[in-house]
Amino acid sequence: MDYKYIEQLLERYWQCETSLEEEAILRTFFSQNEIPAELMPYKGLFAGEKTLQEARLDESFDAKVLAKVEKDQPVKARKLSLTRSLIPFYKAAACVAIILTLGNAAQTSFRQQDIGDDYNYETYQDSYNDPEMAYDQISNALQMVSQSLNEASVQDSLLQTPNNEESQN
């Protein structure tokens, strides 16, 4: 083997003048057993690189990861273009702004019963993007209410007739 060639390659390596193929040659060279003493010091570096290069995970790995991830799969890959996901936000913000402005200004004498008036769900801004997190929150909330119900002496109030609902703020 012409060690001079390797030495030249090495020099060019430090200067970043080597191509990928030439670098591969260096690594292959240094993986050998027979290396001249003066080049021996660099064996560790290149052999180490080669070891790393060849490191692989086996087939069973795929199965393990997919198992962990697969149970979430039914919720399909969620595409959320940033602008698209912000549009409802802008609309909602606009609506809230309008309503709040009106709410403050308007003082009419209209009186109407608000039997079953709809909640303005469009203005609801989600605090969570992830259903899992939302689920946790709801879970907590229901747990608290449940405890509270159990503690209070809730008699037949559940079956009382509905109150007469007049509007009043």
Binding site: A106, F110, D114, D117, N120
Partner: peptide, 24 residues
Amino acid sequence: KRALCLLWTACLIPHAWGQDFAAK
């Protein structure tokens, strides 16, 4: 359109809440 709708609704029933307790 939605904004105008809500605007109109808001005008009609100013004393109805249209929102939950938390929001209020």
